[in-house]
Amino acid sequence: MATTPATATTTREQPAPSSLARVRADVDRELSPVPVSPVIEARDLNVFYGDFHAVHDVNLAYGRNEITAMIGPSGCGKSTVLRCLNRMNDLVAGARVEGQVVYHGQDIYAKGVDPIAVRTHIGMVFQKPNPFPKSIYDNIAYGPRVTGMKVDSMDDLVEEALTRAALWDEVKDKLKQSAYGLSGGQQQRLCIARTIATRPDVILMDEPCASLDPIATSRVEDLMVELREDYTIVVVTHNMQQAARVSDRTAFFTARPDETTGNRTGLLVEYDLTSKIFSNPGDQRTEDYISGRFG
């Protein structure tokens, strides 16, 4: 069974560089053509919601200490694939997953695997900041408490998580205040800190900046690049400039309509280094999308 990333079957003349071919110097680093010893692999992944085939035969490998962006038009299955990586689709009525998602050699969909334990190791940050109706401190402490995580000092853990999320200096004097009093950008960084507090290996982000202003977006992007040093990050984004700025690799998805029903099934078109995807994509569909000709 093939586990290498999908590649394009279309070859063509070298295209003119896209206007989005601007990868930040701090993320444009030397990487192998495909991830070495990937942390997570999707193998022949198919997702169904009832009779609807939402995602078709996705094969992707996510590299250690890399940021992988998944881009594509609405309805192409990128968020569905993201939710498969920590079994969040288990919570969707009628959802069914076929194929494998392998995390450090273990299929997380195998019989007997606890999805709660999976989500402890593979955390998620959602599109809209969702702090709990608790204090800032209790938001961070919640995960370690409910999972029974052994810590020497909860105070130190809270400070560490907030510091890693670049939020400590802004909230250290109001830890007992409600998290709802924070700005939208601060709430999103709080949610990132809450994810970090359980010490995961992987952080999934589903359009984490969609509801944020440009300043808050920039802070979250900078934070993602910093966190990459200790975590594997997978981000779904509609913002192609964001994908070009922060990611090491990019996967482009599209949707194929069923001729009979009109339902759109998500397909992986191309997966490569971000610098190549945005400067010299191997598939015309990728070029058309990033240049704004469709999507």
Rank of each mutant, 00 (worst) to 15 (best):
S37C: 10
L31A: 12
D28Y: 08
V36C: 06
A54L: 04
H56R: 12
V34I: 12
E41Q: 14
L60A: 14
Y49K: 01
R22W: 12
L45A: 01
R64V: 09
H53I: 02
I40S: 01
R43A: 11
P35W: 00
E41T: 14
P35H: 01
I40K: 03
E66K: 04
V39Y: 02
A61Q: 15
A54N: 09
A42L: 06
R24M: 14
F52V: 15
S32F: 10
Y49H: 04
V36P: 08
L60S: 12
A21Q: 11
G72W: 01
A42P: 02
V58N: 03
V36G: 05
V27W: 06
V27G: 06
P35T: 04
V34H: 11
P33C: 05
A69S: 14
E30W: 07
D51S: 14
R22T: 15
V47P: 00
T68H: 10
F52T: 13
V27K: 05
V55S: 00
P33A: 07
I67V: 11
D28H: 10
Y49T: 05
L45P: 01
A69T: 09
V47S: 00
V34Y: 09
A21P: 11
Y62P: 02
V47G: 01
H53D: 05
P35R: 00
S32N: 13
P33F: 08
V39D: 05
